[in-house]
Structures are given as structure tokens and as C-alpha cells.
């Protein structure tokens, strides 16, 4: 296990993370361009929702990435706490801001989609409410890093926040099955049959890839910034 941790030591990993953003950025621009063309022009309109269905191509990937980031943050925080590895906390912190932005995008685009579909901008529907709660956990996590000075205390608090927050993730996922909500049940399933047509699934997957690349780009920039911050403190101690 120690060998694996050594591979991810900041000193070694910075050689990669400092050079990677420009390639990730180039790839992101290519993928998002294809995704936008597919989502806005080439994909068909829905027989029931007409063109408003196109909002799905930003709403759904944003929600997926936001949930994925929070789950990763929980895993990293817990691993960091168990193995006493500060780098895991640093990675987790670097992921948080893009997770929050994706969460807000999912809420706002969902609200915009709700108006023509349900006739309202907002409803205290189980999925919307649980997504709002996730945003609050993201806020608490980021605020904890800002207000506390003692690193050990920050590690404890942020791990606790992610552990409490992760309880909400399966609630978000299964809220449409457990309760009678305005949201329709999931159309894309890994274990059972996917009910979305391939002409809509393809742009959705392309946009998800683009969003994942963007979150990777922001993560790399944030992580590099955190490492330089540490090195700045190191220069003070010389």
C-alpha cells in the first residue's frame, strides 16, 4: 500500500498535473463542440416535450458529475483519514468547487426545464430537495476549509461532512422509485434495460464526457494551486 501512496506523492505527481491541463483543455474544447452540435442541432426533438428535452443534455450530465464528485470526495476523505494521507484530503478539496458548480447547474437547468414541462420553476419534489441538500453539503465542506485553521480538525470535520452527505446520494438516486415525484424514473440503467433512444443517448454521453473533462481540468488547476500554496509555505520556512 505504501508503494501506491508513494506513486501519488505530490512531488512526483506535480510533473504530470502541471503539464496535463493544456491537453485536457484542448480535448474538452473538441468534445464540447461535438456535444453542443449534437445536443442543439442534430438530436431529435421529443414527441411529448418537443425541443425542451434538449435541456436534458446539460441537466443530466451536471447532476451525474456532481454526484460522482461527492462520492469520490467521501472515498478520498475516508481513505485519507484511515491511512493518514494528507494528499487524499488535498485531492478531495480540489474536486469540491467543480462539484458544487455542477450541482448548481443541475438545480438551475432543472428549474428552467421544470417551467415548460411541469408549469413551475420549483417544487419541493424529493429529487429536487435532495439535490438542494447535496448543494448544502458542498457549501459546508468548502466553508469548513475556509473557517478552520487547524489541519487535523479540518480533516476530521470535512470527513464527517462527506460521511453525512453521502447518505443523501442513494436518496437522490432512488428518490424517483421510493416516492411519487414529478421526476420520471431513470431512463438509463446499467443493470437493466436503457429506455432512451440511441439518437438521444449519444449526445447525452458526449456531453457527459465533456463535463467530466471540464471537472478534470478544474481539478488539475485547483490541485496545482494547492501544491504551490504548500511550496510557498515551504519557502517561508527555509
Amino acid at each position: 500500500m505504501k508503494f501506491v501512496f508513494k506513486l501519488f506523492e505530490p512531488n512526483k505527481i506535480f510533473l504530470i498535473t502541471s503539464r496535463a491541463p493544456k491537453y485536457v483543455m484542448a480535448l474538452f474544447i473538441i468534445v464540447i463542440s461535438i456535444g453542443l452540435l449534437e445536443a442543439l442541432i442534430f438530436s431529435p426533438e421529443d414527441y411529448k416535450q418537443s425541443h425542451s428535452v434538449r435541456i436534458m443534455y446539460v441537466h443530466v450530465p451536471a447532476a451525474w458529475i456532481s454526484l460522482g464528485i461527492f462520492s469520490s470526495m467521501t472515498f478520498l476523505s475516508l481513505s485519507g483519514y484511515i491511512f493518514k494521507n494528507k494528499n487524499f484530503f488535498l485531492i478531495s478539496k480540489s474536486l469540491a468547487s467543480s462539484g458544487l458548480v455542477f450541482n448548481i447547474i443541475a438545480l438551475v437547468t432543472g428549474s428552467i426545464w421544470g417551467k415548460p414541462t411541469w408549469g413551475t420553476w420549483w417544487a419541493w419534489d424529493a429529487r429536487i430537495t435532495s439535490m438542494l441538500i447535496l448543494a448544502l453539503f458542498y457549501f459546508m465542506y468548502l466553508i469548513a476549509w475556509r473557517i478552520y485553521e487547524n489541519k487535523d480538525y479540518i480533516f476530521k470535520i470535512t470527513t464527517l461532512i462527506t460521511l453525512f452527505g453521502i447518505i443523501n446520494v442513494p436518496i437522490i438516486k432512488f428518490s424517483v422509485d421510493w416516492w411519487n415525484t414529478l421526476h420520471q424514473p431513470a431512463s438509463i440503467n446499467i443493470l437493466s434495460k436503457t429506455t432512451i433512444h440511441s439518437s438521444m443517448l449519444f449526445p447525452l454521453l458526449i456531453m457527459t464526457a465533456a463535463f467530466a473533462l471540464f471537472s478534470l481540468l478544474i481539478f488539475l488547476m485547483k490541485y496545482n494551486t494547492e501544491l504551490i500554496k504548500i511550496k510557498n509555505k515551504g519557502l517561508d520556512r527555509l
Binding site: 428552467i112 415548460p116 478544474i218
Partner: peptide
Amino acid sequence: NMNGYGLYVWSAFTFTLVSFVSLY
């Protein structure tokens, strides 16, 4: 126009892109 849904669709995409640019 997108059959009258243009305002909703374009505002959702614009909000997303503005969020991306701001975060970057």
C-alpha cells in the same frame, strides 16, 4: 425558436457555459 422552447433551452445552455467560464 425551437417551437417556442428556445428561451428555456438557450438560457439553460447559456447558464451552463457562463458557469464554466466563471469557474475557469
